[in-house]
């Protein structure tokens, strides 16, 4: 179960651009590194990140093996309505980790 750190402003004036910062714990194993016995460690990365704002996708990122462990993503959105931001990280095992944050638009 990955641990996450999410930074979203609690309230934002309508129509303004606000910043969202997310950090997720993940080894981001590249698939290119050998283990002690010389065999390659299987690739294990988060390959897709999606952020939805009241159900509508506002940001999507594809991640690749060159991204460091515990990927940190910072992006922006425009404040339209109060509601929920949902964050989805999908890894190589197909597991999707979801976190949510409330935002109030004034």
């Amino acid at each position: 179960m990955p641990r996450t750190l999410i930074n979203v402003p609690q309230s934002v004036p309508r129509g303004t651009v606000f910043e969202i910062k997310t950090l997720v714990s993940h080894p981001m194993e590249t698939g290119f590194r050998p283990d002690e016995s010389g065999r390659l460690r299987p690739r294990d990365i988060i390959h897709t990140f999606v952020c939805t704002y009241n159900g509508e996708e506002v940001f999507r990122a594809e991640l690749f093996p060159a991204i460091a462990a515990n990927p940190f993503l910072s992006f922006t959105a425009v404040a339209t309505e109060s509601g929920e931001l949902a964050f989805h990280w999908t890894d190589d095992h197909g597991a999707i980790h979801t976190e949510t944050a409330r935002i109030t638009v004034t």
């Binding site: 641990r3 750190l5 930074n7 910062k21 950090l23 714990s25 515990n70 940190f72």
Partner: peptide
């Protein structure tokens, strides 16, 4: 920034 410092992940653990 406690939401950008990955060390905080270990603190939470």
């Amino acid at each position: 920034d406690d939401t950008a410092n990955p060390g905080i992940l270990w603190v939470r653990d």
